[in-house]
């Protein structure tokens, strides 16, 4: 399963970013192969519509679940329409790796 995690930097050791639309990096992680790749969030530099820009990127990458601190109304609407699961970090989630470890697939 393909996850996308919002992060402050471009590795699995990076701190997660609790903002979705304005996070610096989006990390794509495949739970089957454990392969991952980091992408700069196209939303971060937008003057407006950051949530939609970031959500469009997640949709286009074919992720099935997205993990972040929270999701704004626009991004949520896009994910619902695309049937992409949204999961929030727990209070203790610090790094991307921890977010991946804590992730549990809920249908």
């Amino acid at each position: 399963m393909k996850l996308i995690i919002s992060a402050q930097n471009s590795s699995l050791e990076s701190q997660v970013d609790r903002r979705f639309g304005r996070c610096a990096w989006l990390i794509l992680f495949d739970t089957e192969t454990h392969q991952w790749e980091a992408f700069e969030n196209p939303g971060v530099s937008q003057s407006g519509g950051a949530g939609v820009a970031a959500a469009q990127f997640v949709v286009d990458k074919g992720a099935e679940v997205v993990l972040s601190g929270d999701f704004g109304p626009n991004a949520s609407r896009a994910f619902q329409a695309a049937n992409i699961g949204m999961q929030r970090f727990t209070d203790s989630t610090k790094t991307v790796q921890e977010a991946v470890n804590q992730f549990k697939y809920v249908k």
Binding site: Q46, G48, G49, V52, Q56, V59, A78, A81, A82
Partner: peptide, 14 residues
């Protein structure tokens, strides 16, 4: 302004 998004065959308007 990212007022449009595409999900599959649907275009969403914000």
């Amino acid at each position: 302004f990212h007022a449009l998004a595409q999900v599959g065959k649907n275009i969403l308007v914000f």
